[in-house]
Design a protein around this nucleic acid. Sequence first.
RNA 1: GUGGCUGUAGCUCAGUUGGUUAGAGCAUCAGAUUGUGGUUCUGAGGGUCGUGGGUUCGAGACCCAUCAGCCACCCCA
Length: 471
Amino acid sequence: MAKVNVGIPQGTRDFGPEVVRKRNYIFDTIRNVFELYGFQPLETPAMENLETLMGKYGEEGDKLIFKILNNGLDSPAKQEQAREDFEKVLKGKNAVGVTERALKYDLTIPFARYVAMNHGQLTFPFKRYQIQPVWRADRPQKGRYREFYQCDADVVGSNSLLNEVELTNIYADVFEKLKIPVEIKINHRKILIGLAELGGGASKAMDITVAIDKLDKIGLSKVKEELVERGLNLSEISTVENYLSISGSNEEKISQAKHLLGSIEAGKKGIEELEGILQYPLATQHADAAGRHADIYRRDSPLIIDFTLARGLDYYTGIIFEVRAKGVQIGSIGGGGRYDDLTGLFGVPNIPGVGISFGVDRIYDVMEELKLFPTGVSTATQVLFFNLGDKESKVALATAQELRRKNVRCEIYHEPAKFDKQFKYAEKKNIPFVVIIGEEEIKNNSCKIKNLTTGQQVEIPLKEISEFFFR
RNA sequence: GUGGCUGUAGCUCAGUUGGUUAGAGCAUCAGAUUGUGGUUCUGAGGGUCGUGGGUUCGAGACCCAUCAGCCACCCCA
């Protein structure tokens, strides 16, 4: 075997036929739900102007943006400028002479850019969904890739809480359809701001959220250590500790939060909105024929208040979401939230929005780990026609065409071969039926159909074949 | 960006303190079987031991470098 010296960039992957089918199953499920809720599709370019992306994802985010080297840097006319700009790059600055485009980092900012560019033509509220790859120059590890797909749904141009309710319903709907047990955690940025005002002042908001976000990972005592490092005094820390000790059902959490933060304007507002969302029923778990699920559902609601939820993206200002799969050690498989004024960054103020995102690649990993893909997903061809010679294959081909016209997916074995081989081919490709048309069958005007799953075989008149597959 | 682990057949992995011609299972192909798969049996192909250097009489094993993959931190989907 020749040594192949080829590869693909770190953190990227090829997807073989089986994997593509499974991924499409996820994409289709999500897309259908988006459509059910009245969202419209949008696609934006793989790359954006660098300045569109820079400064939107926080300092860390900027470092993770894949930048594209300008073409023509070697042209003599530009060489001096290129050299000068490269010096800037070495100092950690951006220089348009070297790079002025970048691969998109998420779907939300390009969407905001689109809305800003087209706000004159759009009817608001504008509800769009978008399913496209994004790129991050992160170091790959479990559940983390450098190229991965996001599926976003956003509503812009409306302040109504009903949008948040609909989006949580989309989350619940999709994950129910995919059979992934999830927790949909919700929190509110204003509650975090309220906490900061109470414990250290608004300027400490970032320090506090960063620290408490780690609670479930590093534990309370380490969080307190980190708060000390970040310059909070003892009484401030004890305020934060009180906040973190909030527990119980959603209702209990709300009432404790009111007690602690209800006197602060921001906190009060945040709590009210969380309460507002929880008042709506989450209408995903449909009663089955016997009417079960109908009332146990409220207790099993995946919607859970988590006051430690912070989320990194700078632009969120209201409700924030994060979805985690139960029983799988992987990061979040979805996230989102409300932003007051994203398009303001592009010169068009006063268009608020709220959105959610699905991480398909992680959802795939979760479903693989929990073995949740339905068996039919990898069935491509439904019927294999055996090839038993020249004359026989002509009949087989004609019959296959008849079935194909009726949308049955068929193929004919590519050359005459022993039964053994043709059977094994069908097996390997997971084809459930084989049709045998040989000399005998042609004489009788019939065909044999064998179900490879059950092993049962029947002989029927050739002209009844399509009925067989539509019983 | 920081740290750790692992690279031996297509895949999963053995390989003794450094010692003859580097093994197994699975997979592939052929045959037993010229109209009935999944089971079984027989046989075959397939390796520059990630790459480059070093130590040694001798390296798959030890040392250094490098590349790749995985994992953790940071951050995130």
